[in-house]
Amino acid sequence: MKKNPLIPYAIIAVVGVLAVIIISFVGVGQRDAIQQAEEGGTEQSAEGEVSTDPEAVFQANCAACHGADLSGGMGPDLTTVGSKYNAEDITGIIQNGKGQMPAVQIPAEEAQLLAEWLSEKQ
């Protein structure tokens, strides 16, 4: 009895098509979740509130590069940043980035609070 060589290929093709369909549905769900996060996720913190503690904002967003004590690391030392930049300049740097520093995605109120705090570091 002669085996039909097309049967294994047909099974592989059907399994492949089903896999593509399943992956497509998963991708559509992920795309929707990403769009929802982009539309409403960047304006408020995880708790839905704007922080009023500039040190907490710094620790959450800046300390990884600038050091927990402002002394630098990957990013520059910020212990005397207020002698070089005023609060408005610092806000602009936080929101738009500068050099290798990327823009930080935090609410404008937190950026202003953080900038005022950093501008006092002289």
Rank of each mutant, 00 (worst) to 15 (best):
G41N: 08
Q35A: 09
E38Y: 10
S24P: 09
V28Q: 02
A37C: 03
S45L: 13
Q36S: 06
P8K: 01
V28G: 00
Q44T: 15
L18R: 04
D32I: 13
A10K: 07
F25R: 15
A13C: 08
G27R: 07
T52F: 07
A46K: 08
Q44S: 14
E39G: 07
S24C: 11
V14T: 13
F25T: 14
Q35I: 13
I7E: 14
I12G: 07
V20Q: 04
S45Q: 15
R31L: 15
T42M: 12
A13P: 05
V26F: 01
V28M: 07
G27L: 09
P5Q: 09
I12P: 00
E38D: 12
I23W: 03
T52R: 11
V26R: 01
R31P: 09
I7F: 13
I23G: 01
R31I: 14
I34K: 05
V15G: 09
V17I: 14
F25H: 15
G29K: 00
F25S: 15
V26M: 08
G41E: 04
E47A: 15
T42W: 07
E43Q: 13
G27V: 09
E38H: 06
L6S: 10
S24L: 14
E39V: 13
V20I: 13
T52E: 14
A33W: 00
G48V: 13
L6R: 11
I22S: 06
R31Q: 14
A37L: 07
G48Y: 03
G27S: 07
A37K: 02
G41K: 02
A46P: 12
Q44H: 12
G29N: 03
F25P: 12
V20N: 03
Q36T: 09
G27E: 02
I11Y: 06
Q35K: 08
L18H: 02
A33M: 02
V14D: 01
D32W: 05
I22K: 00
T52S: 13
I34Q: 03
G40S: 08
V28H: 01
A46W: 01
S45C: 12
Y9D: 10
I12A: 14
A33Q: 02
G16S: 06
